[in-house]
Computed example of a mutant assay.
Amino acid sequence: MESPDLCWHSSERHYILSNSTFTKRELREEELPRSLYTGEPVWPRHSQERLQNKAATLQSIAANTKIPVPQFENIYMKDGLLHLQTKRSDGVQLSTIDPSQKADAVAKVEETMN
Rank of each mutant, 00 (worst) to 15 (best):
L81R: 15
E2L: 11
K108R: 10
L17G: 03
G39D: 03
D79E: 15
V106I: 10
K54F: 07
N64I: 00
Q71P: 06
V69D: 12
T23F: 07
S10T: 15
L82I: 09
I97L: 04
D104N: 03
H46T: 01
T57F: 01
M113C: 11
G91C: 02
M113T: 09
P4M: 11
N53K: 13
S20V: 08
D104A: 02
L84E: 11
P41Q: 05
R88C: 04
I97D: 00
L32F: 06
I75P: 01
A62T: 10
P4Q: 12
D79N: 13
T96S: 02
L36S: 12
H14E: 14
R34M: 07
K24V: 09
A63S: 15
L36R: 15
T65I: 04
T21N: 09
Y15M: 03
S35I: 04
K87M: 05
K78C: 06
T96W: 01
G39F: 05
S95H: 01
P4E: 13
A107V: 02
S11Y: 08
Y15I: 09
P68I: 07
E30G: 03
T23R: 11
P33V: 02
N53F: 00
P68Y: 03
H9K: 15
P33H: 08
H83A: 10
Y76V: 02
K102Y: 01
Q101Y: 01
G39P: 04
E73K: 13
P33K: 04
R13L: 08
N53M: 07
S100K: 03
K66S: 11
S3T: 15
E40M: 07
G39C: 05
V109H: 01
R45A: 13
W8V: 07
V69C: 09
R28E: 14
E2V: 11
L36N: 13
E30D: 15
V92E: 04
S18K: 03
E31F: 08
G91N: 02
Q93D: 02
K78Q: 14
T38Y: 05
A56G: 10
Q85R: 14
K66P: 03
R28M: 12
Y15E: 01
E111G: 04
S18M: 03
E110L: 14
S60T: 15
D5Q: 14
S89Q: 10
W8F: 15
N53Q: 13
